[in-house]
Design a protein around this nucleic acid. Structure first.
Lengths: 221, 221
DNA sequence: TAGTCTCTCCCCCTTTTTGGGGAGAAGAAA
DNA sequence: TTTCTTCTCCCCAAAAAGGGGGAGAGACTA
């Protein structure tokens, strides 16, 4: 017989917890260990000796301590707790923050029912699990460009760059050297160097790093 | 009756194209318009008046022009062509580059059969489509760098950087040269170069631009 | 105590970048 | 027609970056 997966659920709405328990009870490999209604309760429960769960289902908005604080607590105490975020937020910033705090899964409440059991099993098994809508926004944000902290895309000189210069700055930003760029664009290395020089002058930056940063800021990579 | 989805396939291996056609022909909503064996053929085909396809299935490694070049061509000509990358590469760098070039889907060849029809329908419908393995590595690369100490499989890269290395990568990202960094940190230039080298090795990037990009992505600048 | 990690510096060498200059061809604009 | 921009390539030289390697001091840790 397979080993049971023990789960702790934390959400400030009792009714939602009951719903989750009902869904999970349909699967005999999973068992709810206990539940919490606030972040503080979660922290206290896991701090108490003998209390542990394979997977913690965690809401974000909770009184006293929210989901972020709970994860920060685990990180600070170096507790390696597997956590699935169950949230109504599908905002990329929140997802990103949760990922950076080390959550193992993220599912949204509007399609929790179909995902929760699979998510628990995957995460208990050491995998990550994200519902489709979350996968989508993560990938979307990935294909969008990176934004540097605290800078607005300045009066873009970008119009002042010629087509070829844009070709070159793009490849520089992707870590290519001049010989490699020359090869890709079918140009002489000396020509690529000419573009490098004119780019440095036009954009008033010191080196290739400055060019790459400019490309990032102005979303031309 | 539903409108047919017209597809153009590009791969330098005829046999693979034949396989794809065979799979697609099982679905009566999709029709192969034509195919190309090189990137140049793709570009020429789409440039030719009257030729158009709802979705382009595109291989990366092809003679004359590769998949990257084909997408760059579309971007340069401001052609809004829906593209699904069909590749044997599941390297995050390549996926990332393709995403930034605006591809609408990415599936790997080893599980193309089960995905290709759904991918085509999704992309034709304006959605994005990525096979599970690609979704996984994208999300992993998104979260992987942030995984916290004591946690999870491998140690996070950012945690693996020493204090001094972070000092150096920060200054590199601000366009400082090694002599300048040495001056600012009161070190010998050779010491700064040692840090540069260990950073390049640890972060698996090619040059200072790669270091700066890493710093931006991981918000350590 | 022995081992590992970090910080520091050095040697060698090759490749690349940066900085200065010039210049021809094509095309568009004045 | 002349002028301007863009694209292309070249020369030279100095500075910087990249790629090996080694090595000592100090601190932490198994």
């Amino acid at each position: 017989m397979k080993k049971k997966i023990y789960v702790h659920v934390a959400d400030d709405h009792k009714i939602l917890i009951e719903g989750i328990i009902a869904v999970i009870n349909t699967d005999k490999d999973i068992e709810i260990k206990d539940y919490s209604l606030t972040g503080q309760e979660v922290v206290d429960w896991f701090d108490k000796k003998g209390n542990k769960a394979d997977v913690l289902i965690l809401d974000i908005t909770m009184p006293i301590l929210d989901g972020f604080e709970v994860l920060r607590h685990f990180n600070k105490k170096q507790i390696n707790q597997k956590v699935i975020i169950l949230s109504s937020y599908d905002d990329i910033k929140i997802v990103q923050e949760m990922l950076s705090l080390g959550c193992n899964g993220y599912i949204t409440k509007n399609n929790a029912g179909e995902h929760i059991v699979n998510a628990i099993k995957a995460v208990a098994n050491g995998e990550q699990y994200f519902s489709e809508d979350i996968q989508k926004i993560v990938i979307k944000s990935f294909s969008g460009k990176f934004v540097l902290p605290g800078d607005s895309p300045e009066k873009s000189l970008i119009e002042a760059l010629t087509e070829r210069e844009i070709d070159v700055i793009r490849l520089i930003s992707r870590e290519y050297s001049s010989p490699e760029i020359a090869d890709k664009l079918n140009l002489a290395v000396s020509t690529v160097d000419t573009y490098r020089k004119s780019l440095l002058k036009k954009l008033k930056v010191k080196n290739a790093v400055g060019l790459a940063m400019y490309a990032v800021k102005n979303k031309i990579i």
